[in-house]
Computed example of a mutant assay.
Amino acid sequence: MKGVLRWLGLVLCAFVALQLFFVLRIAAMAVLAPESTTFQRSEAWAQLSATGQVRWRQQWMPYGEIADTLKRAVIASEDDGFANHDGVDWNAIEQAWERNAKAEARAQKTPSRPPKIRGGSTITQQLAKNLLLSGERTLLRKGQELVLTMALELLLSKQRILEIYLNSVEWGNGVFGAEAAAQHYFRKSAARLTAAEAARLAVMLPAPKRFEKTPGSAYLAGRTQTILARMGSAELP
């Protein structure tokens, strides 16, 4: 019995130490820009394993030097309640569950067409996952994501969260952050993006590698127009 209790105590201590490590990392991000994220390092390793080389384009841009058009477009596309929620949009999660249940029901009737599964994660949740967590999908990892989401919201301002997100999110194969994306797709700085260009970049975020290969897709063009129409009501932090 003492051995079991000792083992449980060690597990608890390790868990607390890990949470403290994460919290300290996040607190430091209030003043220090993260050099890389767990997701980026995972992508770099995958590239190295597959090709023997790493393609990585990224250039940090301060919040004030990223065009408001891109901030509005990303909020309108990814998380329209970003400025007001506490890190988790429970209504969006509930709606995502309902959409996914319907998609799976339709897929059972037509097995040849796999269901399109959509998430309800906020920008803060996406940042928590990409910054510090692996890509595995388990209840334990989802629980850790929620803990990190709360820490981000408590320790960083909304502007800082959005700044880190826009500078680290993937926008193509080896393309990370707003500046690299603006240069890669439009040969201009992220400070000079038009509303249409910003909307197009925002629409790519759920599947940037796929859209990078199909820039002329009808879905991309149609979704861009939808986000353009929503951008006017997107609230910036």
Rank of each mutant, 00 (worst) to 15 (best):
L70V: 05
G222T: 12
T37R: 06
F82Y: 07
V74P: 04
E35F: 14
Q159F: 03
P115F: 01
A221H: 04
R72W: 01
L220N: 03
A67G: 14
G232K: 09
G216C: 12
R160D: 00
P206I: 03
R160H: 02
R141A: 11
A180K: 01
Q53P: 03
T149Q: 00
R200V: 07
E145Q: 04
W7S: 11
S49F: 10
L133A: 03
R106Y: 01
S42L: 13
R99D: 09
Q225F: 12
P208D: 04
G174H: 02
H184N: 12
E197F: 08
R210D: 07
L18I: 05
D80H: 11
Q159A: 04
P215N: 11
L220W: 03
L228N: 00
E235Q: 12
R118C: 05
I66Y: 08
I93D: 13
I164C: 00
K209G: 11
P115D: 03
E235A: 10
L139V: 13
L236K: 06
A76Q: 02
Q144K: 02
K2W: 15
E35H: 14
A218W: 09
L152G: 00
G87V: 00
G52Q: 08
L133P: 00
E179G: 03
G120I: 10
I227W: 01
A27Q: 01
L152H: 00
W171F: 15
T138M: 07
A17Y: 08
G172W: 00
P62L: 10
E78R: 03
